[in-house]
């Protein structure tokens, strides 16, 4: 086992009021270590996105703690949380959220620009990452000119350009065809994962199961800690 990346304990999260009140996370416990590529699978509405958000410092839980690389996330101020996300975590959103009025390279450069990297340097770096994700020569196109799979790769380049320790992906293959989805996940595992990094993926897509080092099941807000390694 490597060192602990995320340690979460007793997480609870409620949404809504009265009749509509739902318990989206029920006493969730989770440990992940560096070097892992963990999948969280489960039916729709079971709380997978909620869990990812709580683990990555986006959504405050009603109770419980998240220790991320030793930092007690939910004791941090909002600004400290923002800084934490910017420096430690890369996000790939389900529907990419690329800026249509910026070029592909500018989109990829955003995390570096937010980290005060000089504009031109950030763009040079972005071009490198576009090359890594196989989009050489597309740097100056607007993202809408790219196909869905290509846009997803732009989003991945944006998520990894600042070399985060933890990569968070929510349904990264949902809007891609099977082959494209597989090749993207395989690509991320090959290019990004190493002994000092950890990837958390939420997915419905069984076709990519072969890449997981561990698969956790979620149902009705509970995370079952019986694990299934794909090699088993």
């Amino acid at each position: 086992m490597g060192t602990v990346a995320i340690h979460a304990d007793g997480l609870n999260k409620w949404f809504g009021e009265g009749e509509a009140r739902t318990n989206a996370l029920k006493d969730v416990h989770l440990d992940t270590t560096f070097g892992e590529m963990v999948y969280i699978v489960g039916p729709s509405g079971s709380g997978k996105t909620t869990l990812l958000s709580v683990l990555s410092g986006i959504l405050r839980p009603d109770s419980g703690t998240v220790l991320c690389e030793g930092a007690d996330l939910w004791k941090l101020s909002n600004d400290e949380l923002a800084t934490f996300r910017l420096s430690k975590i890369g996000f790939v959103f389900q529907d990419y959220h690329l800026f249509p009025r910026l070029t592909t390279a500018e989109n990829v450069a955003i995390p570096l620009i937010l980290r005060r990297t000089d504009w031109d340097k950030a763009l040079i770096e972005a071009a490198k990452y576009l090359e890594i994700v196989g989009l050489k020569g597309r740097a100056n196109l607007p993202p809408v000119k790219l196909s869905g799979g290509e846009q997803q790769r732009v989003a991945i380049a944006r998520a990894i350009i600042s070399q985060p320790d933890i990569l968070i992906m929510d349904e990264p293959t949902a809007s891609l065809d099977g082959d494209t989805g597989r090749s993207i996940v395989a690509f991320v595992k090959e290019k990004f994962l190493n002994a000092n990094r950890c990837i958390l993926i939420v997915t419905h897509d069984a076709r990519i199961n072969e890449f997981a080092t561990r698969i956790l099941h979620m149902e009705d807000g509970r995370l079952s800690n019986e694990e299934r390694h794909q090699n088993e």
């Binding site: 600004d79 923002a82 800084t83 975590i89 959103f93 955003i110 995390p111 937010l114």
Partner: peptide
């Protein structure tokens, strides 16, 4: 999305 990535308010 910028906020999620880590832009401060």
């Amino acid at each position: 999305a910028l906020k999620a990535i880590g832009t401060k308010n």
